[in-house]
């Protein structure tokens, strides 16, 4: 059975596309297919590698690894006979400071808070210096300072010309930060600027009966596992 069908979109350098949709819409599936980790048919053209930030990081808090070690996985991916050089260390430290954790490099990864771990995983992806950054729900279960640091780092990457694909259930985030929105629910229900793609009809089509129109300016989406309250403009 297909989890996702007939998806077609383009990503411009420096652009942020938010992938939104209800649970089971295929947001994560799309990212994993782009990464080549799920069987898929179709074509995908990109100049360079993809950097990925998973929704759930490593669960083993006891693993003997520091924050800097984790970022080095991105700065100097393990390859036979390749050692970690000074350039890689410098790139890793720079990526850590981009997410506001410049002083935490020597701390054990397992001792960091959930938000800090998510920032370390983002720094690992930044250190790959890939032209496209894929993020799967990067703000789920992170505290406010981490949320700010993550969004600031993403904006800095965009300014550098990195294209960003961000899967999220947060419609307010998509509306305020995305250049374009890909509204998914098994297939593409809308693709375009937030004002168009997140219109009432498009959302009703994607979310079905699980959406409640509050007024002309706001929406509430009742999903299976989460509740989004979006009071943005242009609904």
């Amino acid at each position: 059975m297909r989890a996702l069908a007939d998806v077609s979109f383009d990503l411009v350098a420096g652009e942020l596309i938010a992938i939104v949709g209800p649970n089971g819409a295929g947001k994560s599936t799309l990212l994993l297919a782009l990464l080549g980790l799920l069987p898929s048919s179709g074509t995908f053209d990109v100049a360079g590698d993809l950097a990925f930030v998973p929704q759930h990081g490593p669960a083993d808090a006891d693993f003997p690894v520091t924050a800097l070690d984790v970022v080095l996985q991105g700065a100097a991916p393990p390859r036979p006979f390749r050692r970690i050089d000074a350039t890689a260390r410098s790139a890793a430290r720079s990526a850590l400071s981009e997410v506001g954790l410049a002083d935490s490099g020597d701390r054990p990864y397992g001792s960091l808070s959930g938000g800090q771990r998510q920032r370390v995983l983002l720094a690992r992806a930044l250190a790959q210096r890939a032209p496209i950054l894929l993020l799967d729900e990067p703000l789920s279960a992170v505290d406010a300072p981490s949320e700010q640091a993550i969004m600031a780092a993403i904006a800095a990457e965009q300014a550098r010309g990195v294209g960003v694909l961000l899967a999220t259930h947060d419609l307010a985030l998509a509306r305020s930060r995305a250049d374009r929105v890909l509204l998914l629910a098994g297939h593409v229900h809308a693709f375009g600027p937030p004002g168009e793609a997140l219109g009432v009809e498009q959302l009703r089509s994607a979310y079905g009966g699980r959406m409640l129109v509050l007024d002309d300016q706001g929406l509430a989406v009742a999903d299976d596992h989460c509740h989004d309250h979006d009071h943005g403009h242009g609904a």
Binding site: P54, D60, V65, P78
Partner: peptide, 22 residues
């Protein structure tokens, strides 16, 4: 000597290791 970093990364974050071609 040759594989310890890749082995450790695979143990630490198996899913992400696959995304970088390991």
């Amino acid at each position: 000597l040759v594989g310890s970093r890749a082995i450790a990364l695979t143990s630490f974050d198996r899913g992400w290791a696959r995304t970088i071609g390991i």
